[in-house]
């Protein structure tokens, strides 16, 4: 599948934003988020900014973004519509939290708002994952692990963002370091098993099944294409990344997204100073890593329609 940059920015940025919203909400409910100072407001503001940048970016690949309001109507059947509805609903408690913390109002309702924000964040990211996970046409996406990987990567990058914000606006306590480490390990192992799973699946559909020709042990191959140059279907769904490049990009993204942050957080916890800088390095590495991971998620995805254009299995 063609890796559209607008969708890569959308899923990574809003994924991290929802992850941050989730963890800061839970920290607030647990009473471990420092209530004083700018941290609560600043964190929720960063989360909402990342979510908004992502959602705006996702409208860039639309042919008619001005009609986007219609996308909230088909939540009964469409995961894309459900995602839109969940995203809008999550804005309400999260926006109120931001407002309350900005005004410095003391109220117990923030606990409820935080809970609703956390639930909204999980539901929205799950819907994002299911947009891809529900597509039977792409075997690399049609996996139970797809929404789980979206959830854990959002969670891991969000936890890291909370840690870097805490490190800069005060200090990052030990629990946030442990939170980041656990998140990174869970997300990393799920992503590695996802890669193993898609490598082990050669695809169940063949050109013979797509054309109904060459039955009983025969074979089919394309002779003349229907058009001289690639059409929309080939440009959108026929994107191919060389196996060699994919392998090295997988390594790079695993190092930047999981290994580097884990090492940086461990050093920050054990060393006496420089935690803020180390968390910043970890965040930048993870940002690059998750963008690469998302690019690969699209580039490595093979679409069944390519059976009509020379693919032998899909």
């Amino acid at each position: 599948m063609h890796p559209a940059y607008s969708v890569i920015v959308f899923t990574t940025s809003s994924g991290a934003g929802y992850g941050l919203l989730f963890w800061l909400s839970l920290a607030h409910i647990a009473g471990v988020l420092p209530g004083e100072g700018w941290l609560p407001f600043f964190s929720v503001a960063v989360a909402l900014a990342l979510i908004t940048v992502g959602l705006l970016s996702s409208t860039l690949h639309l042919g008619h973004p001005e009609r986007a309001i219609g996308a909230f109507s088909q939540w009964r059947s469409s995961w894309l519509s459900r995602e839109g509805v969940a995203a809008v609903f999550t804005y309400i408690p999260a926006g109120l939290l931001a407002l309350i913390w900005l005004m410095g109002i003391e109220t117990g309702v923030t606990q409820l708002l935080a809970l609703l924000s956390a639930v909204g964040a999980v539901v929205t990211v799950y819907c994002t994952g299911m947009i891809y996970g529900s597509l039977r046409t792409i075997r690399q996406w049609h996996k139970g692990l797809t929404p789980l990987v979206y959830l854990t990567l959002g969670s891991a990058t969000g936890a890291l963002l909370l840690a870097v914000l805490m490190a800069f606006l005060g200090s990052a306590p030990a629990w946030v370091a442990i939170l980041v480490l656990i998140n990174m390990l869970v997300a990393g192992s799920l992503k590695l098993s996802y890669w193993r799973q898609i490598d082990a699946d050669p695809g169940q559909y063949t050109t013979e099944m797509a054309t109904g020709l060459g039955g009983n042990g025969g074979s089919v191959r394309p002779l003349d294409p229907p058009h001289t140059m690639p059409n929309f279907v080939m440009r959108e769904m026929g994107y191919q990344v060389a196996r060699k490049h994919a392998a090295s990009l997988r390594r790079l993204s695993a190092i930047a997204l999981f290994a580097a942050p884990i090492v940086a957080v461990l050093i920050a916890t054990l060393a006496s100073g420089g935690a803020a800088v180390l968390y910043l390095i970890a965040t930048l590495a993870a940002a690059w890593g998750v963008a690469t991971e998302r690019w690969l998620f699209f580039a490595e995805a093979e679409h069944v329609s390519q059976l009509y254009y020379g693919a032998t299995r899909a």
């Binding site: 599948m1 219609g70 279907v233 959108e236 769904m237 069944v304």
Partner: peptide
Amino acid sequence: DTCIGCKLCSWACPYGAREYDYDDGV
């Protein structure tokens, strides 16, 4: 008149039967 041009339907078609019109945006 209501298509937003998100292209998701073309992703869901195994037959490659839908083609996006870049000028019309649908």
